[in-house]
Design a binder for these strands. Structure first.
Lengths: 374, 374
DNA sequence: TTGTAGGCGTTATCAT
DNA sequence: ATGATAACGCCTACAA
């Protein structure tokens, strides 16, 4: 007993001698080796399992690791060419940060990354391209995810000379340097029309998004609209478009009054606006004595109402943050870990419909009835 | 001309010889030194400016840096004991992520960090304590910020043995291991009462937050409520409390009907609920023919309506993400860079009132009139 | 099964 | 003013 105590004291002395004054610097692999009475390589191998270690030795090592609270130094590992297990998430802060939609991408990326064993380094500065360059060049991160991608995205355009793999969640025009993952919004436009047409709707109102989004990231909002309009023309469906507006300053009262006044009113709404605007329209419809879906069907596209408080459930062809983020991380990880070339890849996800009962069928009979009742 | 071309070719050959097959690995300081025809230490000093370098040499170095696109390797720098310029931001994902309030803390921290020269490593996993341990022990980050802090916060309780400085935005019970920055909600409670009392209000309704918040992070929501109630008693102000509710399932119609029915109704509301709930109450007040602030004053406390769409502007004693985050980062940076000891520090910020016209004065005369009219 | 030694890219120290 | 070199902590090829 005494000998052990003495031995222990001696060891402490050695330690103190090694690092005399400094306030106990972090334990390194050497300290563990000394504590366990083995060599550093034994410690390394015991931890990595890359070669067999006797149970006895292994136990000693683990005990020492535990005792000293040893964690390998991240920098030193990287110097050995080992990945940093960190990805950069570029999300330049623009005006409208409070949308649930945006937030969801954020969190789902973080979640998917963590599940793949990566931490997330957040880049929110205004000079996104430079920030990305800095963290990729310095090997701080293993890869890059671009969020809130515009049609004409500077980051995507520069991604060719980032020194790490890069993936955009979105579909920018210039994307030779990165992979892209997005929903197929052209298909979504067609599908929206077909969905309503096949349920008997022949005249629909289109509730526009706010103008800023059309100007900025046409890719997503504009593509849907154009594809939808062109399909409607093809199938002979009439589309009445809402007027333009900035921010949330949409005149829902006027919209409902003007659009749903006469007997020949639309039987459905295709919505591209956010939760606030749509909620106000729903409220006005109710005031006007029109109920959903009996009098007016509502189909919302490119929105994300899971996180929003809607005045009633709305059938939706939503954006799919969880799906896209997961897919993006999958691709990125394959590029990082297996060196798969993903530059220029584009994966467009088929749009899905979440039925929430706000779209009703109009049978030919009913339609005839309506026409007759005029 | 030909000689220059030849020389260039020769150099290329040398480069190719140096790194024969590998797909052009990232340029290091050695490559720059070779390219510039100087030693590595010269390159290092030319870049850091820590000793004087002749203009000629400096130019050569800069040219080489430019040509090769050299950026120092972050890991190698850290090995030399240099800070990583990254802080960890711990924000465990709970249910109610979509509140503007929450989001604001997030982004303001990122912004403040960037302004201080730090990147932000996001930790959103369920096992926050372990994640923090991992990134601090491995020297991946220089410091830690805790967000969404509960009264009984596990992370704050464990912060004593994190190997890096840590600061909580919030005021947990156990905080010996970290610094805390928060609003003085006890003071806020008193101030809310005084503010209304001094404007003549003698009977107010208190609109509770959802129950989950009371249970979870009492620190913030409960302290305000208790302090407010006790001050009201002191000054002889009557407080009518709303009933409890989960999530957003608050019955605004009933609340307004029951609370504002008779002539002796409250002249003001102190609100602690979120934007949705308050909006519904405002709507019902309007339906009941009561206008704000003429008939009912509204003061909201501990909310953050800057990012929310309110049906009318509401005078607020808001949480102050921008202020708290800035302050927190200031403290954290001083701990990181000057080694200032911040463990156990608590900085409580005085609450501020944002006047938005939803609180009106009731003159003694008016009050007399009201009483008389009964 | 275990130990030794070299090297990753940078910077500080010492030498020129 | 500049160059050579050791050291940082870790990993692994090689030797024993």
């Amino acid at each position: 007993m005494q000998r052990i105590a003495a031995l222990k004291d001696a060891k402490d002395d050695v330690e103190n001698a090694g690092k005399p004054k400094e306030a106990m610097t972090m334990a390194g692999i050497k300290d563990v080796a000394r504590e366990a009475g083995v060599s550093v390589s034994t410690v390394s191998y015991a931890l990595s399992g890359k070669r067999s270690i006797s149970a006895k030795t292994s136990d000693k090592v683990m005990a020492a690791v535990e005792k000293l609270g040893y964690t390998p130094d991240a920098s030193a590992r990287k110097m050995r060419g080992i990945r940093s297990q960190v990805i950069a998430l570029s999300a330049p802060i623009r005006g409208d940060i409070n949308q649930a939609k945006y937030n969801a991408y954020f969190l789902h990326t973080a979640w998917a990354a963590r599940n793949a064993g990566y931490d997330v380094l957040l880049l929110t500065g205004p000079d996104a391209v430079n920030d990305i360059r800095r963290v990729t060049q310095s090997n701080l991160v293993d890869g890059v995810v671009l969020l809130d991608v515009e049609q004409d995205d500077e980051r995507a355009a520069s991604s060719g000379d980032f020194s790490k793999p890069c993936i955009a969640i979105g579909y920018p025009q210039a994307h030779e340097g990165c992979a892209c993952v997005d929903i197929d919004f052209a298909e979504a436009g067609r599908k929206a029309v077909d969905f309503l047409f096949d349920k008997g709707h022949r005249k629909v109102a289109f509730l526009r998004n706010n103008e800023a989004d059309y100007e900025r990231r046409s890719g997503y909002v504009v593509i849907f609209r154009e594809s939808m309009l062109s399909r409607a023309k093809e199938r002979g469906m009439t589309v009445v478009e809402s007027s333009r507006y900035e921010d949330d300053r949409f005149d829902a009262i006027r919209f409902v009054r003007e659009t749903f006044a006469d007997e020949d009113r639309p039987t459905a709404i295709i919505n591209q606006a956010n939760a606030n605007v749509l909620n106000r329209v729903l409220q006005e419809l109710s005031v006007a004595g029109l109920s959903v879906p009996e009098d007016v069907s509502v189909l919302s596209c490119g929105t994300y109402f899971d996180g929003e408080l809607m005045s009633r459930p709305i059938t939706e062809m939503p954006v799919m943050p969880e799906k896209l983020c997961l897919q993006a991380m999958g691709l990125l990880v394959s590029a990082i870990e297996q060196g798969v070339k993903i530059k220029g890849d584009v994966e467009l996800e088929a749009p899905a419909v979440k039925l929430r009962g706000s779209v009703a069928e109009i049978s030919p009979g009913e339609r005839a009835l309506k026409v007759a009742s005029r």
